[in-house]
């Protein structure tokens, strides 16, 4: 029996995954993405927020061969296939780091602090990693 079948009711909650860490320096980004894919399989209303160093997860052109780690950035592009389409990025984090939308591997919605605060307020559950 799959985990999906184990669910006995069809509650849909607004799940927000807050990504505040850069990739590769630690495993949080990768393992967070694994939860996102499962949450999508459970048909929850999933949003991803990239703020602080989390925006580096979406940087184009990641090449990991020389560090001997798996490049998991293509997974962000695959999120659409899992119906995960709500990707939000903090304007403040982008400005601080000199990163623009063109640097990113996927289409995102860039939000200022006020809009982000409202978005967070609107969630049912906030996952942090």
């Amino acid at each position: 029996m799959s985990e999906e079948e184990m669910m006995d009711d069809e509650v849909v909650k607004k799940f927000m995954f807050v990504n505040r860490r850069a990739p590769y320096g630690s495993i949080y980004a990768l393992e967070s993405l694994e939860v996102v894919l499962i949450a999508a399989a459970f048909d929850q209303d999933v949003s991803l927020l990239f703020s602080d160093d989390g925006i580096y997860q979406l940087k184009k052109g990641q090449e990991t061969a020389e560090v001997g780690m798996k490049n998991f950035s293509p997974t962000y592009r695959a999120l659409e296939m899992y119906d995960v389409e709500k990707l939000y990025v903090s304007q403040t984090a982008m400005d601080e780091r000199g990163i623009s939308k063109d640097d990113l591997i996927v289409e995102v919605e860039v939000l200022n602090d006020e809009a982000l605060a409202d978005l967070m307020d609107d969630q049912d559950v906030i996952f942090s990693f």
Binding site: E3, M7, F15, A39, A41, Q44, I126
Partner: peptide, 14 residues
């Protein structure tokens, strides 16, 4: 990991 997602759904607070 479905157990974490299920916990998020079923519990009042995570």
């Amino acid at each position: 990991l479905g157990q974490l997602v299920e916990a998020g759904i079923q519990a009042d607070r995570l």
